[in-house]
Design a protein around this nucleic acid. Structure first.
Length: 221
DNA sequence: AAAATGATCAAG
DNA sequence: TTGATCATTTTA
């Protein structure tokens, strides 16, 4: 009884407060920064996986040459970006990896925040199996650091897929984000986004944000 | 540094 | 229908 309580407080859904819709219905750059330190939770068939959000990128919609919705381009793939805030936009990149975005602002404003890295918090054994086919206890240190340190990696670890999760309401009960549990202060680093060489004058916009010094960032700068 | 790998998109 | 692209990861 005591050991159970001692072991699980962080994983108890009832003490984790879900972010309300209004959190997402704000300026995308503010949402991006404010997502740092929050907890991404995915529950599938009784299994809960949790990662602390430590790295994100903002995609600013029609004006942003790096965004899928640049120039109001609208396709089957990015349709969710044009829907209400607080939903997940999950797409497949390079034919093999999934990436997850949080949609922001409001209907017909196709902006969002790419989740680029997490710090694993719970469901570690499931994450280890998903990523490396091994038990968590068998992982090398480098593998632990690589569990969720990239947008494709974290989707594998968290079992986030386009088929299952694209369009999911983050105010629902399967895939959601909660407020920070700890109040540990942190510094935010802002820098250029990754792998958007095609974006011309938007290449240098400082719209990538991460928790300074966190070892799970995808690419330290 | 370069391959892997296939969904997605715009052109024709 | 098709050829080029790609908000990445892995291996070497």
């Amino acid at each position: 009884m005591f050991t159970r309580m001692h072991k699980l407080p962080v994983t108890r859904g009832d003490i984790m407060e879900k972010l309300p819709r209004e959190f997402y219905e704000r300026n995308t750059l503010d949402v991006a920064r404010d997502l740092l330190g929050k907890y991404l939770v995915h529950e599938t068939n009784g299994i809960r996986r949790i990662g602390k959000i430590i790295e994100v990128e903002a995609y600013m919609g029609p004006e942003d040459k790096a965004a899928h919705s640049y120039n109001r381009r609208r396709t089957e793939r990015n349709d969710v970006m044009y829907g209400p805030a607080g939903h997940a936009y999950v797409y497949i990149i390079y034919g093999m990896y999934s990436c997850m975005n949080v949609i922001t602002e409001g209907i017909d404003i196709p902006r969002g925040v790419l989740i680029r890295a997490l710090e694993p918090v719970d469901g570690l054994s499931e994450m280890a199996i998903s990523r490396f086919g091994k038990n968590y206890s068998e992982l090398k240190k480098s593998q632990i650091l690589n569990l969720t340190s990239g947008p494709g990696k974290l989707c594998i670890a968290m079992n986030i897929t386009k088929a299952k999760d694209n369009g999911e309401d983050l105010c629902g009960n399967n895939l959601y984000i909660t407020k920070s549990i700890t109040t540990d202060p942190f510094e935010i680093t802002a820098c250029k986004r990754i792998n958007i060489d095609y974006a011309e004058e938007y290449i240098d916009k400082p719209w990538r944000f991460y928790i300074k010094g966190n070892p799970f960032v995808s690419k330290p700068r």
